[in-house]
Every structure is written in C-alpha cells, then in structure tokens.
Amino acid sequence: MTAPRIPPLDPEHLAPKVRDLLAALPDAALRTANITTTLARHPELLAASYPFSRMLLYAGTLPDRDRELVILRTAHLAGSAYINAQHVRIGRLAGLTPADIDRTTAGPGADGWSAHEATLLTAADELHHHACVSEATWQRLAQHYGEQQLIEVSILAGHYRMWAAALNSFGVAPDPAPPTAGREATDAAG
C-alpha cells in the first residue's frame, strides 16, 4: 500500500470530544501515534480499546519478555510492520536482545530458544494458523503458567492478530522512532 486507506487525523481537525479523549491518555507519544490518530476517526472504539490494550501490555500477568515474544511472533506472522516496529522497541525494554528479536521471525525451531520460549512461539504459531493451541503445547505452557497466564497468552496473541489485520487493512504506517528509549516513548504500541 502506498498511502493509508484511512489516514490519521491531523491534530488541528480533531473534534472536541476526541481532543479530550486524547488529552486523557498518559503520554504525548501515544496521543500522536498513527494508530491513535487513525482510530480517532472512531472515538468510541478508541475509548473502548485503549484500556484493554493497556491492561495486556502493562498490567498483565505474563513476564514482559514472554509477552513481547508472543507479540513479535504474532506481528511477524500477520505481516504487521506497525506492531513490529513498536514492539521491537518495547521488546528491548523487556530484555530481548537484537538476536532474540531477529530470531522471532525464524520461529520456535530456531536455535537459541529455551524450551519454554519455543513453546510460547509455538503457541503463537498455532493460534495464528489454527485459532487454537494444541493439547501438547497447552500442557507444556501449563508447566510454567497458571490459569490466568494461560488465558492471557491466547488473548494476547488474538488481540495483536486483530490489530494487525486492522492496521494492515487501514494502511497505518509505523511511527517514526522516538527520540528517547524510555517506556513513555513506546507506549503507543497498541
């Protein structure tokens, strides 16, 4: 796609309701991110989706590293340049090395993953391709996770698959790299 099908709104053209909604978001990077300014065209959806996305990203029960492995693998499988760009930055903050990030594209069979990490990537693959985690993969995940974390792995992969489909369809371009590497500058991940 050479141009967005649904372009981000110019901040000067935001309706007062949308300006108020964006002003309530916790950081400037998120207020101006392409995902946010595109969703600003549907204020109710933006308002409803933000708390759920934020919960998964910052208040979930999965370790940060595990969460980012699932998101990056899902972004790769779904061909989402937007999610990938955002979560490369967030993944680094979560402790992923550049080699880890590169290896997510190779999948669970790549050398260098722990057995648990390979299982997480396998779960992301199965959810992407079959909309279900196989029994064998589920049992391996259950050796490390409780019920809440098992629920979260499936919801997380599905949530980012949904966003990938939407962002790819809308033609949302990745945001420019933030000038700082701080967590506030990367909150725009969606």
Score class of each variant (00 low, 15 high):
residue 65 R to T: 10
residue 72 L to Q: 06
residue 150 L to G: 11
residue 5 R to L: 15
residue 32 T to F: 08
residue 114 S to N: 04
residue 36 T to A: 06
residue 148 Q to T: 15
residue 94 A to Y: 05
residue 27 D to R: 03
residue 39 L to R: 01
residue 145 Y to K: 01
residue 131 A to M: 12
residue 126 E to P: 10
residue 10 D to K: 07
residue 171 G to K: 05
residue 62 L to K: 00
residue 20 D to F: 05
residue 61 T to D: 12
residue 70 V to C: 15
residue 42 H to K: 09
residue 188 A to C: 12
residue 125 D to E: 15
residue 83 I to R: 00
residue 127 L to C: 03
residue 132 C to S: 12
residue 59 A to Q: 15
residue 102 D to Q: 13
residue 15 A to D: 15
residue 121 L to C: 00
residue 142 A to F: 04
residue 78 A to P: 03
residue 143 Q to I: 07
residue 22 L to R: 13
residue 18 V to S: 01
residue 26 P to M: 09
residue 36 T to M: 00
residue 183 R to P: 03
residue 173 A to G: 08
residue 116 H to W: 11
residue 22 L to A: 07
residue 44 E to M: 05
residue 59 A to C: 09
residue 115 A to P: 10
residue 167 L to V: 14
residue 111 D to G: 13
residue 64 D to C: 07
residue 152 E to L: 10
residue 161 R to T: 14
residue 146 G to T: 04
residue 184 E to T: 04
residue 146 G to Q: 12
residue 46 L to R: 06
residue 6 I to V: 15
residue 155 I to Y: 02
residue 1 M to D: 04
residue 112 G to V: 05
residue 110 A to W: 10
residue 159 H to G: 06
residue 180 T to M: 08
residue 120 L to D: 11
residue 23 A to M: 04
residue 177 A to M: 12
residue 34 N to W: 03
residue 66 D to I: 06
residue 69 L to M: 05
residue 92 R to G: 14
residue 99 A to T: 14
residue 92 R to M: 12
residue 102 D to S: 12
residue 60 G to A: 09
residue 186 T to Q: 13
residue 23 A to H: 04
residue 20 D to H: 13
residue 124 A to E: 08
residue 121 L to H: 02
residue 167 L to M: 13
residue 153 V to P: 01
residue 34 N to G: 15
residue 71 I to P: 03
residue 131 A to C: 09
residue 48 A to G: 11
residue 8 P to I: 02
residue 156 L to I: 11
residue 108 P to M: 06
residue 131 A to G: 11
residue 40 A to F: 07
residue 7 P to A: 15
residue 30 L to R: 14
residue 120 L to T: 10
residue 170 F to S: 08
residue 169 S to A: 15
residue 106 A to L: 14
residue 133 V to N: 00
residue 32 T to N: 12
residue 153 V to L: 02
residue 177 A to E: 12
residue 157 A to F: 10
residue 123 A to T: 00
residue 178 P to I: 04
residue 149 Q to D: 13
residue 153 V to E: 00
residue 159 H to N: 13
residue 171 G to I: 03
residue 44 E to H: 14
residue 182 G to K: 06
residue 34 N to P: 07
residue 132 C to E: 13
residue 68 E to N: 03
residue 64 D to T: 10
residue 35 I to V: 15
residue 38 T to R: 02
residue 13 H to V: 02
residue 117 E to A: 05
residue 164 A to T: 06
residue 31 R to W: 04
residue 91 G to M: 08
residue 133 V to Q: 00
residue 148 Q to H: 14
residue 87 H to A: 01
residue 133 V to H: 01
residue 36 T to F: 01
residue 50 Y to M: 10
residue 48 A to Y: 03
residue 106 A to I: 01
residue 140 R to K: 13
residue 46 L to H: 05
residue 47 A to N: 14
residue 135 E to K: 13
residue 145 Y to V: 04
residue 159 H to A: 11
residue 179 P to D: 12
residue 65 R to G: 09
residue 149 Q to I: 05
residue 161 R to D: 11
residue 181 A to E: 14
residue 160 Y to I: 04
residue 115 A to Q: 12
residue 162 M to Y: 15
residue 14 L to V: 07
residue 137 T to S: 12
residue 6 I to K: 00
residue 49 S to M: 13
residue 78 A to G: 08
residue 123 A to I: 00
residue 24 A to I: 02
residue 166 A to E: 08
residue 148 Q to C: 07
residue 44 E to P: 06
residue 52 F to I: 13
residue 180 T to A: 14
residue 121 L to Y: 00
residue 39 L to V: 01
residue 86 Q to S: 11
residue 13 H to D: 13
residue 176 P to L: 10
residue 83 I to M: 01
residue 36 T to N: 01
residue 116 H to Y: 11
